[in-house]
Design a protein around this nucleic acid. Structure first.
Lengths: 256, 256
DNA sequence: GCGTGTGAAACGATTCACAGCA
DNA sequence: TGCTGTGAATCGTTTCACACGC
């Protein structure tokens, strides 16, 4: 899509890598900055979560086979993924759970708590505001914003809802760099534009619309209706299929 | 794909369909049942949504370039995706919006309304029960199930919550083949097992755990904490990067 | 022996580039 | 002329298979 500069800030790549060239893996032995393949990045949080679970149950060492099975990937894939962070396993044994946990956590940015703003507090936004899976993974909701006068001033999970017109002030004050967009689809782009102007560089978009943002801003879209439609496609295929004898249908795994 | 590998029960088998036989509404003898590439399947609902929008605004013809830009993919990719459904565009002109809409809708299973059950009505489950993006895309919530006595009997969006112990009865009665799992992580696998036994063959899993299901059952996982962690990873990289000269880092598009 | 780490092979998805047709 | 449809080239991801070290 690179071409078509029709609209304003579409952008897409740039793949700035170039520059000083030194960027590949192993920039420094210690600490992060690794350029992981996108598919690996997506799986890392899953590994991390499983490691936390293992750690909590007192497991100290885990093999790629065992961990892989727990998270539903192949052992080879797990090893390849982990190898991107350098070599931390012990041959013939496995991985030290707590070491790997630390290493992976640092790489994924779990080292500190990220302040998050939620824009749009309808049913979904309110559910997200109280979602325990956020806080347990190192995120703290610091701002709830909605234009609805009936909501402004009320609290969700102990945090007051601020009026949309105060978006700039509250984001600046709380220092949120990650925003969760749970507005109606037709409001999403306008809000995203304001957020970007404020310095927000990561957006989790629940609105069923494609956001256009400048380079340097990361957007992840979660479209719940889309997910169900994907399932419907598979359902339909199954029902059409006349129980073909040798069929061995594959199960789609997560992937996002 | 099929991560199979060493997994225990996973995959294997030819479609449990057996038992209750064909559940899905009509098998619509006519029309495809095309085996689309997984990445294409994921994008189809996005195209479909945009087509609905265009249709509603009276647009009758759209080019791959225009449609592609609206949904954030490259024109070549869009054409390739659509070409899987056969040739429906007009060279030199573009695609007939309503024709494409119909064709795509049929292929994705939007031809009829799918009955859906939601298990787990905590904050998230309740939000999903009232989520307009489901009904507007051809899904109808027909059963809400939760073990909490305080919730059982109350209504969400006009639909009463049933006790978990009545899961079998309500699923059988409503004929739901698609289920949305919004239970705590530690309850998810057990509920999934029961659902599968009941003939449910598609599960949208919001619990932060990997489900193991027999072959023929499709699972899609939506892990909200994971999504934020992916954003955190990118945030971290940006903050570590000392504003490398001409850096113009990439924006992650969908994922899958 | 066992399990990691990793090149190399296989596979799949995306992009390119252009022939073909309205 | 303009845009679709599509083989061919490219790129990225996954899987294989085996050398290496505990």
């Amino acid at each position: 899509m690179s071409p078509t500069g029709t609209r304003p800030s579409s952008v897409r790549d740039g793949r700035g890598t170039g520059g000083t060239g030194m960027r590949g893996p192993h920039r420094t032995a210690m600490s992060a900055g690794l350029d992981l393949p996108p598919t690996t990045v997506v799986r890392m949080p899953v590994y991390l979560r499983e490691l936390n679970l293992l750690s909590r149950s007192g497991v100290e060492v885990v093999s790629s086979g065992a961990l892989a099975e727990a998270v539903g990937v192949s052992p080879a894939q797990l090893r390849k993924d982990l190898s991107h962070l350098g070599s931390h396993g012990i041959r013939g044994v496995g991985y030290d759970v707590s070491r790997l946990q630390t290493q992976l956590g640092r790489e994924m940015g779990s080292a500190h708590e990220w302040p998050v703003a939620i824009i749009g507090l309808g049913n979904l936004g309110r559910a997200l505001a109280g979602y325990s899976g956020f806080s347990s993974r190192g995120f703290r909701m610091v701002a709830l914003v909605d234009p609805n006068p009936a909501l402004v001033g009320t609290q969700v999970n102990g945090l007051p809802i601020t009026d949309l017109s105060d978006l700039e002030a509250i984001v600046a004050r709380t220092g949120a760099v990650i925003a969760v967009l749970a507005t109606p689809a037709d409001a999403a782009q306008a809000v995203a534009d304001r957020l970007v102007r404020l310095g927000v560089t990561s957006i989790l978009n629940f609105a069923a619309t494609v956001l256009t943002v400048p380079g340097g801003v990361t957007v992840r879209k979660v479209d719940l209706g889309q997910e169900l439609q994907i399932l419907a496609y598979h359902e339909q295929r199954k029902s059409e299929e006349p129980a073909s004898s040798s069929a061995l249908l594959v199960t789609a795994r997560g992937d996002a």
